[in-house]
């Protein structure tokens, strides 16, 4: 066995050879307090311990160390038969953010089939924004497991490459999992309105309310002017949460055509919606907004009144 110059690390190394897994486990916990770079070797060693509890403990402390020093060991740990070990390894990998880990991650992705492992690797690849991640991520969009598809969407979203838009649109429209559709809808904001506008308008009719919210949000971010009418329709959605996001987006688009429906929303029973509506009317700041804002100056809800005063100052400034 290797010996270490640092006496504390050496003492831990000795404990790690104990026959008692309880003592080995405590030794792993002690590694966290070592400032020695060589402590990482012992963590990697413990990740391969025969005892599950020791491996779990090692996996729990991996994020106390610089993950770049143990990328390979962490990727291997993604395939551990214990879920706690796999989870911790996946989280530590995601924190890596070290371009040097890119190659081993891509290689591991190529060799992995387990959904948990694949999604863990994708999550780690995401912040690295590697061009080499594009093609495997596109492939993963048709994986059978929604966790994999969801992470693949994120990888592609962070890459912001125009050529991936058709695939993301397809996912946003057709994926059977609402969270995957929602993520893909959110990822479309790096496009131009010409590229994804029509798709986003369609997504305002998605079966799941959170996808509809995300679509309205993305339309607002893209300032997709052709979506005014569909957004106006969305202000009649059965859920106030969707109506609120549609109203926000209409404020961003700034079309005077939307003033009457925004005015309707400014009288709604749900105060959160009234707030959003007055905010949007203030953003548009056209004289036709004034009657609604004037009524809102006496709204029973102080947040609405606050926004009404702000909207009134915008109207006065525009006049």
């Amino acid at each position: 066995m290797k010996t270490y110059d640092d006496p504390e690390l050496q003492a831990i190394a000795v404990k790690l050879t104990s026959d008692d897994p309880g003592i080995r486990r405590v030794a792993v916990m002690d590694l966290v307090d070592s400032g020695e770079p060589e402590a990482v070797e012992l963590v990697i060693h413990a990740l391969n311990d025969p005892d599950t509890n020791v491996r779990q403990e090692a996996a729990k402390v991996v994020d106390e160390f610089e993950a770049a020093d143990m990328a390979d060991a962490l990727i291997a740990a993604l395939g551990d038969n214990d879920e706690v070990v796999r989870n911790s390894a996946a989280h530590a990998l995601a924190d890596l953010k070290d371009p040097a880990a890119g190659e081993p991650l891509l290689k591991a992705l190529d060799n992995s089939t387990d959904a948990f492992v694949v999604s863990g690797i994708l999550r780690a690849l995401k912040p690295l924004r590697l061009a080499g991640a594009q093609s495997p991520a596109l492939k993963c969009l048709s994986d059978g497991d929604p966790r994999v598809r969801r992470e693949a969407v994120a990888v592609l979203g962070w890459l912001k490459q125009t050529e991936n838009l058709p695939a993301l649109v397809e996912t946003a429209q057709r994926d059977e999992d609402p969270e995957v559709r929602r993520a893909a809808t959110g990822a479309l904001v790096y496009a131009s309105p010409q590229q994804v506008g029509q798709a986003l308008i369609g997504l305002l009719q998605d079966g799941h309310w959170q996808v509809r919210c995300e679509a309205a949000n993305s339309i607002g971010k893209l300032n997709h002017q052709a979506a005014v009418q569909p957004l106006m329709d969305a202000t009649k959605d059965q859920l106030w949460q969707v109506r609120e996001k549609a109203v926000d987006a209409l404020g961003k688009l700034g079309s005077t055509d939307s003033i009457p429906v925004l005015g309707e929303c400014s009288k709604d029973a749900m105060s959160n919606l009234r707030k959003a509506a007055i905010g949007a009317l203030g953003a548009i700041a056209h004289s036709d907004c004034r009657p609604f804002v004037e009524i809102a100056m006496d709204d029973p809800d102080p947040d609405v009144r606050k926004l009404a005063r702000w909207a009134m100052s915008k109207l006065d400034a525009a006049a």
Partner: peptide
């Protein structure tokens, strides 16, 4: 962060 990696800032009030 949002789905493209930008910080997902939230507006809590209008100011």
């Amino acid at each position: 962060k949002d789905e493209t990696g930008d910080y997902d800032m939230k507006k809590v009030h209008h100011l």
